[in-house]
Design a protein around this nucleic acid. Structure first.
Lengths: 140, 140
DNA sequence: CTGACTGCAAACGTTTTGCACGGTA
DNA sequence: TACCGTGCAAAACGTTTGCAGTCAG
């Protein structure tokens, strides 16, 4: 359980309850779209405005508290900033699962980009397919 | 030089000059956003409608002629469907460069997803950083 | 010749903005 | 207390839709 207030302050942002609630929900779900965040958090704080969610997501991405995860054919989701990892994206239910990043793959990409004199700063690896739960449902 | 008319017909689409022109420009540039496609092709065919570009991009993605490349913080770009490869995305100029897909990395991702019983259908690997041209410009 | 495709303009949904008020540090 | 953040409503933007006319197969 992270201390979101400290996290926000350390990144130059005031800790409002709207922001901590947004972060709590994102951490609970792992990855959320802006709509989903609003729909969840507004249950808790009915006065919450959708514009506030937009403003805060943008701000928290700029300040490296959150990371955008763009997804083919869907709206972007957002996750807490954490160490490199891989996304398994289910094309049926839309859920995104994190997998630890493989250091072999890391080496491959590092040497590949060094050859090109491309100064690598961020990797984004999305693997699309059908998750266990959805393939089970489809079988029955 | 591909025969776009045949490509379209094989995928159940009529070969209008709007569509072949869109495909020609995408192949020339490698990766293009919808705006960029419209701006380029309308120079050639001033009667072209932006709605037509939207309709055709959607249709050609559905029919596997094109692939969407979603990019963090920017609008998606589109490329011709081709064999697996990696995208080097320059965070300065926005250009996307293709790199051949590494079979070692492929093996890693295949075994990783098999462990999870995740039936992998598509990989999307984007490496973000600064390309040679932009780092040269920044140095001077 | 016929169904598929285009261009136009209007409609739609999403995201952004400006401003007065309220809350954090 | 000063400034940053919020909520509201309106504006701006990107995308989609319906329809009448046109064209590829």
């Amino acid at each position: 359980m992270t201390d979101y207030a400290t996290l926000l302050n350390h990144n130059g942002l005031k800790a409002t309850f709207q922001r901590t609630a947004i972060l709590e929900h994102i951490e609970q779900h792992g990855h959320m779209s802006i709509d989903a965040i609003y729909e969840e958090v507004v249950k808790l704080y009915p006065s919450l405005s959708l514009a506030t969610v937009y403003k805060n997501i943008i701000l928290m991405v700029e300040n490296s508290v959150l990371v955008e995860v763009p997804i083919t054919g869907k709206k972007s989701k957002y996750e807490l900033t954490k160490s490199d990892h891989i996304h398994l994206v289910c094309t049926e239910c839309g859920e995104v699962e994190d997998k630890p990043h493989n250091s072999n793959a890391d080496d491959i990409f590092n040497s590949m980009t060094q050859q090109e004199n491309f100064s690598l700063s961020k990797q984004q690896i999305n693997l699309y397919g059908v998750c266990v739960h959805c393939s089970n449902k489809m079988a029955s």
